[in-house]
Write a protein that binds this DNA or RNA. Structure first.
Lengths: 181, 181
DNA sequence: TAAACCATGTAACCCGTTACATGATTAT
DNA sequence: ATAATCATGTAACGGGTTACATGGTTTA
């Protein structure tokens, strides 16, 4: 085994709410799910086929217009069992973060290296942008308490991501200021 | 191309300080570098061979004891240029975090689901452990100002990681408390 | 003398990305 | 008309993990 196939469980989890076609899943990964997980259609379609072979999902086609076929997938009891088992399974161990900023910073051993300030500027810009984006997502999705309750998990991870970006930005700005003078 | 080969630059950056054998790199990835990046020897050795073929590094063998050979690698001017170019290159875009906790949380839409509290307990335990570990690493490595200056980048990313864990723990504890009652 | 560690390699496999490919439908 | 989007697939490739494999050296 190389890595464990988490995509399978994500798909099961999404299908557990309602039936979806591969294209719908792709759109979800480009939209609201995409803030936390992404996947390309070239990975989704073969995965769906394998999951159907294993009996975790079933499919039925519907025609859109006159010729175009849309293949909807629905979770089976077997699939729900697999999903539930995964949800109850302990979390696997934390993996190192592995971002480029961290690694570049690690390799700079001289506080006077001019690269240092540039690196911080870049990282600050990246995270500021992400922070703003996530906040706008929250505004769009969870302004009312009703929306927050209806998609409880989603609102939680979005809030957590916003907090994470806020904290990271603050650390970056503080550390940069302390370094420069 | 699938993913970009960052390991190459990490290795170049490590060899830029002093010559190292594949086994030394493996040990670094199990030790202080491992907090932020990890790699197996099965990936390191072939990578070193490819890098030597491209002229980024050179090797010379030394015998340990009477028979055991240790193959030391040294960065070449060509390798230093590649490393410097990467260091000056803009950071590539942020990728979604993709951890299991986040995804499981996303799939829980009911605030009363008993899985919720269990998930938080687990995640808190994981991050508490990581937090304690990172703090002990900092204590071991950077108690004196001299040590901090000597390995400036390393001390910075360790501090950042500690802050990150601290903030995440706080969010987890606060959110769990608000949820439960 | 046996266990732990040093030291280096290869092979199999899976995941995820990019690119190739085709055709229908809708919006401008 | 034509561009954008819908909809579904396959192919090639690189990175990373696990397992297989071998032998030397040090330590308890």
């Amino acid at each position: 085994m190389a890595q464990k196939n988490i995509l399978k469980y994500i798909i099961l989890g999404l299908l557990n709410h309602k039936e979806l076609a591969g294209y719908d899943l792709k759109k979800l990964f480009e939209g609201e799910v995409g803030d936390f997980w992404s996947s390309n259609h070239s990975q989704i379609y073969p995965e769906l086929r394998r999951m159907e072979e294993k009996g975790l999902i079933t499919s039925h086609s519907e025609t859109v217009g006159t010729k175009l076929e849309k293949k909807y997938y629905r979770i089976t009891p077997a699939g729900q069992e697999i999903l539930s088992a995964w949800m109850h399974e302990p979390l696997s161990s934390l993996v190192p973060s592995r971002d480029e900023f961290t690694m570049k910073l690690y390799l700079i051993d001289d506080p006077r290296d001019p690269l240092l300030a540039q690196l911080f500027r870049e990282e600050i810009a990246r995270h500021q942008k992400k922070y703003d984006y996530l906040r706008s997502r929250w505004e769009a999705l969870f302004r009312t308490q009703e929306d927050r309750l209806k998609h409880f998990g989603h609102s939680l991870i979005l809030e957590q991501a916003i907090e994470r970006e806020r904290q990271r930005l603050q650390w970056l700005v503080d550390t940069k200021r302390n370094m420069i003078q």
